[in-house]
Design a protein around this nucleic acid. Sequence first.
DNA 1: TACGGTCTTATGGTATACCATCATATAGCG
DNA 2: CGCTATATGATGGTATACCATAAGACCGTA
Lengths: 226, 226
Amino acid sequence: MNENACEMGNLRIDSPPTTLRAIALERMRRAIIAGVFKPGQRLVERTLCEQLGVSRSVIREVIRHLDAEGLVMTTGQGPVVAKLAWDDARQIYEIRAALESAAVEACARVADAGVKAELRAAVDEIERRAAERDWMAVLEATERFYDAIFTAGGHTVAGEIVRRLHGRVAQLRVLTLGSENRRVTGPRRIREICEAITANDPEAAGAACRTHIREACAIAERLLAK
Amino acid sequence: MNENACEMGNLRIDSPPTTLRAIALERMRRAIIAGVFKPGQRLVERTLCEQLGVSRSVIREVIRHLDAEGLVMTTGQGPVVAKLAWDDARQIYEIRAALESAAVEACARVADAGVKAELRAAVDEIERRAAERDWMAVLEATERFYDAIFTAGGHTVAGEIVRRLHGRVAQLRVLTLGSENRRVTGPRRIREICEAITANDPEAAGAACRTHIREACAIAERLLAK
DNA sequence: TACGGTCTTATGGTATACCATCATATAGCG
DNA sequence: CGCTATATGATGGTATACCATAAGACCGTA
């Protein structure tokens, strides 16, 4: 969107040189979400140092961050990729249903043409990536879709919380996307939400959102059971 | 409750030697919540090292944690105590209303004698501390009250989120407790919630909870306005 | 006096060093 | 052969060292 705002008098520098820490944090987070590091796996600091090419200071600070984020659990003998108990997952889906549907409804009430266009673009992206079977990309596009909704609806704090929760169930989400069913219904529900927002119909949007999450939860339960 | 579980065959050691980091984290968090460090204030690492008597490694890792927790914001030129915009506070109260009332209702449905006793003890503690005008202690006792509710209701994840949110609005909470009105109505609402749970009446409990938070939100708004 | 340049210092980012602990392997002793 | 004890390595916790940068102080010149 706003790559370089060199036009106009806007010479403002808003991105102080990115730190190694920020890069490492992003990489580690994506690695965990993508399942490169399996739940329960030990995260040996010195090993990560070599893998990322940074010092232990950086790695340790990143691990602290991920720990607070809930993606990593620090046991007595060092950091471990957090594993999700089914009951936790169920609670997370419940909370998501509450926060996301509220945001979706708010968004449907206030959405203007700009927001609608943005959402449509995100949905298109999701469907395109789904067609390519690039599931990580689908996840990221979905994230952008929700981001737009939370921002437009003015629920930025809830958006932050949900982003956190998305990360924690991401392992499952990659699994659920493995379900042939979900590959179809997921994008369909998303499109329903988008269309309800486009029609400025809060009730329909909220309902579609809750249905979407309920379905995801059901699939996750089936997958976690086995 | 369970200080030393030396009786029975339970010789389990569950607290691997506490690290400096854990201690420092707790102290810093409390300091920020108590307002020892004011919102917007720079947190100079080397200064904190002297104040806490630990090395920068520890301080930095703690700051990362608090950053992820939302209590500290890392600007381009270093860490700063997060300051709460009114709109953020409003959103937080809204989210709390949703999550806390849901948990309270769940708790009211399943509460047994043990839970009820625990809640009553917490309420007594709150009222005692309020009488002593020890507002930090009131906050902590309130935290325990909610902890018990979230645990009993099986909403542990939401409890975690709410604990986080409590921290972020704690500055305001200390302020609202400064309001003579709140000193009275706060504990009263808490008692209402407790009694509704004791009566296993989910509707009443949820309603009392929502009222409680709405009042807190209103007072916060008035205080933030000036 | 005003402007510009340089030096100093405060501060965060990054890397490294050192230590305690725990697990494992190996050797010695019965 | 088996058991114990010591050595050794792996790993996290903590402290320190070094560097780059940005902001301020100080000084000299026009």
